[in-house]
Simulated scan of single mutants.
Amino acid sequence: MPPSTETPERAGSAADGRPRRLFVLRHAKSAWPDGVADRDRPLGPRGLRDAPAAGSFLAESGVRPDLALCSPARRARETWELAAAELDGPVPTRHDPRLYGADASELLDVLHGVPDEVATLLLVGHNPGLEDLIPLLAARAVGDALDRVRSKFPTSAIAVLTWSGTWTDLRPGAALLTDLAIPRGARTDSG
């Protein structure tokens, strides 16, 4: 893993008692070109607009992930590349093949392997796994965020979960869902 650009004071969350943060980003809207395998589907026009808006949401939230774990599917990679371009500087990123097609339990296994020095993680992936992971981890939420996730976790949506402890401490019901955003890019006359 490339070294984090975060300060040592921020990196040691579990040791200093500050909560961990998990940002869950569903890939932006993809295209469905004929003859293209699911894993190779690119972003569609709406996805190309919405992915940078997701990055703007992260930047405006003051989010600087210590690590991004991203599905290797083209639409997820393109989403993260466009979103990351809105942040101030590069974020260490791993394209993890386990994220493609993973269910909530498999995603939790991936999260349990996150290094302890990571205080803030961004997970970029797919439904239904992400949509099932969020209510699995969050027994409670601020406002109606949990009901909204249970109803639908659309493309480009970002859920923010917090808890105290290490990544291996993350268990069903242990997190608080603090935010749910659905950033949308500006629509032009052409579409």
Rank of each mutant, 00 (worst) to 15 (best):
G55P: 06
F57T: 14
V36A: 09
L43M: 08
E60R: 15
A51L: 10
L67S: 11
S71Q: 08
L67W: 12
D66K: 07
D40S: 11
D50E: 09
A37P: 01
A53R: 00
P72M: 11
C70L: 11
E60A: 15
E78K: 05
G62A: 09
D50S: 07
A68R: 10
A76G: 13
L69Y: 11
V36N: 03
T79V: 13
A53W: 00
P52K: 06
P52T: 03
R41K: 07
F57N: 00
V63F: 10
E60S: 14
R75D: 09
D50W: 07
D40E: 15
R41I: 03
A37W: 00
R41Q: 05
S56G: 14
P52W: 02
L43D: 01
T79W: 11
P42V: 06
V63K: 06
R74G: 01
G35D: 00
R75F: 06
P42H: 02
P65K: 14
V63T: 14
E78P: 01
D38Y: 04
A68G: 03
V63A: 15
E78G: 03
G55Y: 01
S71H: 10
L69R: 14
D66N: 13
S71A: 07
V36Q: 04
G47K: 04
A73Q: 08
P72Q: 11
L43P: 05
L43C: 08
G44Y: 06
D40F: 02
A51N: 08
G62R: 09
E60M: 13
V36S: 02
P52E: 08
A54P: 05
P72D: 15
R41W: 02
R74H: 11
A51T: 09
V63M: 12
A54H: 06
P45D: 15
P65L: 14
P42C: 09
L69E: 11
P65V: 12
P52G: 07
G62P: 04
L69H: 10
L43E: 03
D66L: 02
E60W: 05
R75V: 04
